[in-house]
Amino acid sequence: MSGQQALRRLPFAVMPAVALTDLLAGPSLGFLPLLTLGPSFASVTGSVRRTALAGLVALVLAVLLGAYNGVLSTWQHDLSLATIVSVTGASMLAGHLRLRRERELADVRLVAETAQRVLLRPVPRKAGDLRVALSYTSAAAGARIGGDLYEVVTTPHGVRLLIGDVQGKGLDAVETAAWVLGAFREAAYDEADLGDVGERLESSLARQLGGETFVTAIVAEVRDGCVTLLNHGHPPPYLIGADGTAAALEPPAEGLPLGLGALHPERPKPSQADFREGDRILFLTDGVIEARDAAGAFYPLPDRVGLLLTGDPQTALDALSADLLRHTGGPLLDDAAMLLLHRQSG
């Protein structure tokens, strides 16, 4: 039996237990007020109608037990009945407010997820001589939708990609992600230099963002056996060599996230690394490295990238995603996006 099913049955299990206790204790000890546990528990997971039914059952049991114990019409028994009625009414109101809020949250989340799916169109599974795998794990139902974003495009300047994470949650984050993706899709084709792509993104966000909103991101270009990276304050990707080695491609200097360019005139400097046949590169958002287990330990990604060494890229990435969920022991608290590029041999 699942925990949800157990909670639904609890109201109608606790009331017979209270009634049996009252029968065994006799009229000298009054347990009738404890029957209010029925409607109280029902309001936690059940509907208003179910809560009212639990209250009615509690009221009937109280009358029957009062008659059996010969305490009907006493002030103590009348007080018990009034307590049951009052608690049932309050529980029905609490249940109604809970259900209304759950519906509102579900509607907001549905709108955000729909907008996010429209923005995050499926990435191509092949781009030039690259095979592309994607894993996107949504946060727990109780968490607000995140602002993770990604894109892969084939341009005259090579295969270019973007992966990023918008500061904040909800529809505002999705709106900001839309600006970033739109600017990247245009700049990736128009600009020959990768640094100019970053400048276009910064300029676009400077016109749209306000306050302290920012976007961590990596803009990358794969061309002529080399990968060029422009890191705007984002977790570094991992290069997994065909020989089994793995290393994080740290930027030469810390770069400010997109949207904060006005705070420092110095822009992130591109860095390069060899990307040979058979190599793989994993790009990720911070939802991966910040995932914790029950003891609070972060996901040990450097120790787990070995899962990506062999096999079909999508199968390998799915195995890493499953391992991530096993580490947390349940749903993630933040969205986690991963892109795996595999440079094919021959």
Rank of each mutant, 00 (worst) to 15 (best):
G30M: 12
G30V: 12
P33F: 12
P33W: 12
P33D: 09
L35C: 05
L35V: 04
L35S: 05
L35N: 03
T36H: 01
L37H: 03
L37N: 08
L37A: 15
L37S: 13
L37G: 02
G38D: 03
G38S: 06
P39V: 08
P39D: 08
S40G: 13
S40E: 00
F41C: 09
A42N: 06
A42P: 02
S43K: 08
S43R: 12
S43M: 11
V44E: 06
T45F: 04
T45A: 14
T45I: 11
S47I: 05
R49L: 13
R50L: 05
R50S: 09
R50H: 03
T51M: 12
T51N: 12
A52N: 01
A52M: 14
L53E: 10
A54W: 04
A54K: 07
V57P: 00
V57C: 13
V57S: 12
V57T: 14
A58H: 03
A58E: 01
A58Y: 01
L59S: 13
L59P: 00
V60K: 01
L61W: 03
L61I: 15
A62D: 08
V63C: 09
V63H: 08
G66M: 10
G66Q: 09
Y68S: 04
Y68V: 08
Y68W: 14
N69S: 09
N69M: 04
G70Y: 04
V71T: 15
V71G: 03
L72S: 11
L72Y: 09
S73H: 10
S73Q: 10
S73P: 00
S73G: 05
S73L: 15
S73F: 15
T74W: 11
T74H: 10
T74V: 07
W75Y: 07
Q76K: 02
Q76N: 07
Q76V: 06
H77M: 08
H77Y: 10
D78T: 06
D78H: 06
L79C: 04
L79M: 11
L79W: 11
S80R: 12
S80K: 01
L81R: 13
L81C: 09
L81M: 14
L81Q: 11
A82F: 14
A82T: 12
T83S: 06
T83A: 09
I84M: 04
I84F: 01
V85S: 00
V85D: 00
V85P: 01
V85L: 15
S86A: 15
V87H: 04
